[in-house]
Simulated assay, not measured.
Amino acid sequence: MNLFSKHELGILRLIPMSIHLNMDVLFSLFLILCVFIFDMSYPAYVLTALGGLMTLGGALYTKPYMKKHQPPIEIKDDTERD
């Protein structure tokens, strides 16, 4: 899905980033709910819940728009060089 999203590393850029992040939130909530829906053993439900929480945090922390790149300093055209 990252390859099709409109962000810096997207190749085809077909899916808006806001839709991508909403799908990440839904996927992470599904992972967290899977712990309660399915009868999982100890390591499985810890890893599933941890993965869901990490994905949820990443989706909520990511900005849904691209910033235009600006250089940190202004580069002037210096024509009087030796």
Rank of each mutant, 00 (worst) to 15 (best):
I75M: 08
V35F: 00
I19P: 01
K76L: 08
V35W: 01
I37F: 01
G57E: 04
N22F: 09
F27E: 06
D77T: 04
L47S: 09
L50Y: 02
D78L: 09
A59C: 08
M23Y: 01
S41Q: 06
P64Q: 15
D39G: 06
Y42D: 11
M1C: 00
I37A: 14
L33G: 04
T55R: 12
M66L: 10
F36W: 15
E74C: 03
L12R: 14
S28M: 08
G51N: 14
L26T: 11
E8C: 07
V25I: 15
A59D: 07
T62K: 08
P72K: 13
S18R: 12
L60I: 07
S41G: 04
S41P: 00
H20V: 03
M54A: 15
R81P: 00
S28Y: 09
L12E: 05
K76C: 03
K67R: 13
F30D: 00
K76A: 06
L14W: 02
G10R: 05
S41N: 09
K67M: 12
L47G: 03
A44H: 06
A49H: 01
Y65L: 09
L31H: 01
L33W: 14
F36H: 09
V25P: 01
E80G: 01
G10S: 12
L33A: 12
P72C: 07
R13A: 00
E80C: 02
L26D: 03
D24T: 10
S41A: 06
L31Q: 02
L12P: 00
F27D: 04
T62L: 04
T62R: 10
L33R: 09
